[in-house]
Amino acid sequence: MNSSGLNNKSINNTGSDPLKQQVVSITYEEIGLFPRSFNRVFDRFFKQLFFDVENLVIQEYRFYRYLFLTTVKCVFILLFVPLTVNFIAKNYFVRPITEYYWNTHQTEIFLNSYQQKRAFNELKNFEEKIYFESLILSNPDIFLNSKDLNSSEQKIINFENIDKNKKFSDIFAKSIQNSLQTETIELAKHYNEESIEAITNFFADLISLSTLFILLLRLEIQLNITKSFLLEVFFGLDDSKKSLCLLFVTDLLVGYHSPNIWELFFSSIFDRYGLPESQTTIFLLVATLPVLLDVLFKYLIFRHLNRASPATVATYHAMIE
């Protein structure tokens, strides 16, 4: 389909408002042989020669105001509507259903074996801590070594200390048993809640993604306007600022200087959904995904930006080198 067909289609969708027709037609503008800034400069020059300048300024102001307001509205909807849906679905729909099913229709506490191993390790560490404390507190020697006491007095004191040690040992053994039982119950509650939270996060995020996908389909025209406005702002910068923006994005997100950010990101994802946190898997993802994104980003620069603004591409490569 050619560009004229796309423009006619967009005008039919917007009705008879000439301002909206002009906005939507720009959203389908493709990158040509020359930068669009050249075309805009010549267009303004001829309009200033043959048309009313005051009306031209007013129309241009209204045009860019409409672009800006539409962009803000579109970004606001795409950000806050899925987050609001996630919050409502998670707290009022998904979590009550998950808690009811998990606590009544099955006897499992752990979502997977990874959580079970973590719980056993925590319980083992607690037992070692209790055992260490028992070695310190279970031997309260209160024997008197005074030379002034005769043998009968020392025997009486020894019997009293043995009786005290026996009572202390019984009390301490019961205390250890109660502590282990309390810690086991607390661990069971914690990991049961963690399993419910992981299942809730999965379904709530799935609903949010579905909402975002529906919004992307319903707001197609607004998204084209937003893309056009952002490209307008980007190409309005000079070459050094555009290159600096590109360099910042590549180094921060897809560059080789931020592996710790990617490790933290994948660890958070695994923890959020209760997945086994394998360091090998995380290192493999960190080693492959940023490289793929870097290749894709460079392809987009070569495919589009090299035609629209060759000076920016040259400045970008110069900054890299």
Rank of each mutant, 00 (worst) to 15 (best):
V295T: 11
M319Q: 04
F213E: 13
T288I: 15
K227I: 04
F202G: 01
S228M: 12
T104H: 11
G236Y: 08
G274T: 02
L223M: 14
L230R: 11
N112A: 05
P276Y: 01
R40H: 13
F172N: 12
S208A: 14
Y100R: 01
S134I: 14
E60T: 09
G255T: 04
S37F: 04
N150T: 02
L19K: 08
F270N: 11
F265N: 12
P96A: 04
N7L: 15
T281Y: 15
L292S: 04
M319F: 04
I225V: 14
L137V: 12
S146L: 10
I320F: 00
N103Y: 13
S10W: 13
V286G: 00
N165M: 12
V249C: 01
T98G: 04
F68H: 11
P276K: 00
F159M: 06
F248I: 05
Y191P: 07
N161C: 06
L284N: 08
D251L: 03
T280Q: 10
T107W: 10
F50H: 08
T107H: 15
D43H: 14
S152I: 12
F270H: 03
S169E: 09
K167C: 00
L296C: 09
Q181M: 07
I136N: 05
A287M: 10
L223G: 09
S4W: 13
I109S: 07
S258R: 03
F120S: 14
K124D: 08
F283R: 02
H257F: 06
T70K: 01
L284P: 01
Q106V: 02
Q115G: 07
Y131F: 10
T14Y: 05
T315D: 00
F87G: 07
L79A: 09
G32A: 04
N201E: 08
F168Q: 07
F266W: 11
L246H: 01
F297G: 08
F302A: 11
L217N: 03
A287H: 06
S210T: 13
S195Y: 14
D251Q: 04
T182Y: 09
Y66M: 13
L285R: 05
I88G: 10
F87D: 11
H257Y: 09
S228L: 03
W262T: 00
E160V: 10
S151E: 14
I176L: 07
F270I: 00
V57S: 12
C245G: 02
K242T: 01
Y256M: 06
I58S: 02
V254N: 00
P259E: 03
F50I: 09
I162E: 02
F126N: 06
N13E: 13
A311G: 00
Y299C: 01
F68N: 10
F235G: 01
S175G: 05
Y64G: 03
N12P: 02
L244T: 12
